[in-house]
């Protein structure tokens, strides 16, 4: 297997990987949008004044963080049809990704907001700023800066997590390697290829994140 690592085979069937790469990017993007929306909502509810909503947001965040994505995925994949909801695999996959990362993102946003020093809010209040203006001009700009880096890490996690969607037969990058294996019965070529492709995505996101970090340093003074 090692002796005859077949590069030619990879190049001949690169379409397989290109297709997978496209789907990985698409699923990650859709998962990301759902996760950010869910995360913002859960964060707002948790910091909001209504007790019952605080509790339900807390329940969502803690239960997702304490259970594995794969179990959440199987729960939706096997469970939804049983209660009469039949959705395409791709939709189930995006829901699972969004639900999972949303819980982590809610915590990231919340931590960002809580990191803003209380003294600044008091100062803004005593300068006569309205509650809305305090949020808009004092809290949120700093919170976004604090949350940006962990948000990028979570985005990288989300892209890697999307590999699990191959297990419910969504034809993304990890599925391409499996497909390659079943066609040519040589597993390493496929898995090494997709490892490199995932790594390329990681390098792009990571350098974007580094670039961002330098800019943010000027806002927060710390980074």
């Amino acid at each position: 297997m090692l002796g005859h690592f077949n590069l030619q085979l990879i190049f001949d069937h690169f379409d397989l990987f290109r297709h997978g790469l496209w789907w990985t990017c698409l699923l990650s993007a859709m998962g990301w949008i759902s996760a950010v929306s869910l995360g913002l909502t859960a964060c707002a509810l948790k910091l909001g004044p209504v007790r019952a909503l605080q509790r339900s947001a807390g329940f969502y965040i803690e239960s997702i963080r304490s259970t594995p994505l794969l179990v959440q995925l199987y729960f939706l994949y096997f469970g939804l049809p049983e209660i009469g909801i039949v959705l395409p695999e791709v939709v189930v996959g995006v829901i699972a990704l969004g639900l999972n990362s949303g819980a982590y993102m809610a915590e990231i946003f919340r931590a960002g907001i809580l990191k803003v020093a209380p003294g600044q809010i008091e100062a803004a209040r005593s300068s006569g700023l309205s509650a809305w203006r305090i949020q808009r001009h004092v809290v949120l700009p700093q919170a976004v800066a604090y949350a940006a880096m962990p948000l990028m890490s979570q985005t990288i996690v989300l892209v890697k997590d999307s590999s699990l969607l191959s297990l419910i037969s969504i034809t993304e990058l990890a599925f391409a390697a499996e497909d390659f294996y079943s066609r040519f019965f040589s597993p390493l070529e496929g898995y090494v290829t997709i490892a490199l492709l995932y790594f390329a995505i990681y390098l792009i996101l990571n350098s974007a994140s580094d670039h961002w970090a330098r800019k943010i340093k000027t806002i927060t003074g710390t980074g």
Partner: peptide
Amino acid sequence: IHLVRGTPFLVQLFIIFFLLPE
């Protein structure tokens, strides 16, 4: 560290799974 962080665990697992017996 970057290689591990930059690839999904699923992919690492399959590579080890096929490579280790070799």
